[in-house]
Amino acid sequence: MTMSLTKPAMRGLLAKRLRFHLPIAFGLSLIAAIAFKYAVTEPRNKAYADFYKQYDATKEFNAMKEAGIFESVRPSGE
């Protein structure tokens, strides 16, 4: 009694596997993009907005000028 193995289905194997894996890959990438948006970019944008609500550029410039950071601007005392 001889047992013969069935031939592997090679024809159309790539297309069959792509039909299965491509929607999964697309769905996972979409989930990752949405998670990145809400976990990273939204809090970062909120932090920037909160910082610039109370940021005074003139006050910061005068503090740096008094500290002597700028070579082309003399402090007020001179």
Rank of each mutant, 00 (worst) to 15 (best):
M3P: 13
S4N: 11
L5F: 05
T6L: 15
K7Y: 01
P8V: 06
P8Y: 01
P8S: 06
A9P: 07
M10D: 09
R11G: 07
L13S: 09
L13V: 05
L13M: 10
L14G: 02
L14F: 04
K16G: 00
K16T: 01
R17L: 14
H21P: 00
P23V: 03
I24V: 14
A25K: 07
A25H: 08
L28K: 04
L28S: 07
L28A: 12
S29N: 12
I31R: 12
F36P: 13
K37E: 13
Y38D: 04
Y38C: 09
A39N: 08
A39F: 10
V40F: 14
T41Q: 15
E42K: 15
P43L: 06
R44L: 10
N45P: 00
N45M: 10
N45H: 07
K46L: 14
A47N: 02
A47F: 04
Y48N: 04
Y48G: 00
A49G: 13
A49I: 06
A49K: 11
F51K: 08
Y52P: 01
Y52Q: 02
Y52M: 02
K53P: 07
K53I: 01
K53T: 03
Q54D: 12
Q54A: 13
A57G: 04
A57D: 09
T58E: 12
T58C: 11
E60P: 00
A63S: 10
A63C: 01
A63W: 02
M64C: 11
K65V: 12
G68T: 03
G68S: 05
G68Q: 00
I69H: 15
F70L: 02
S72N: 09
V73S: 00
V73R: 02
R74N: 07
R74Y: 05
R74T: 01
R74I: 03
S76N: 07
S76V: 03
S76Q: 07
G77S: 14
G77Q: 13
E78S: 10
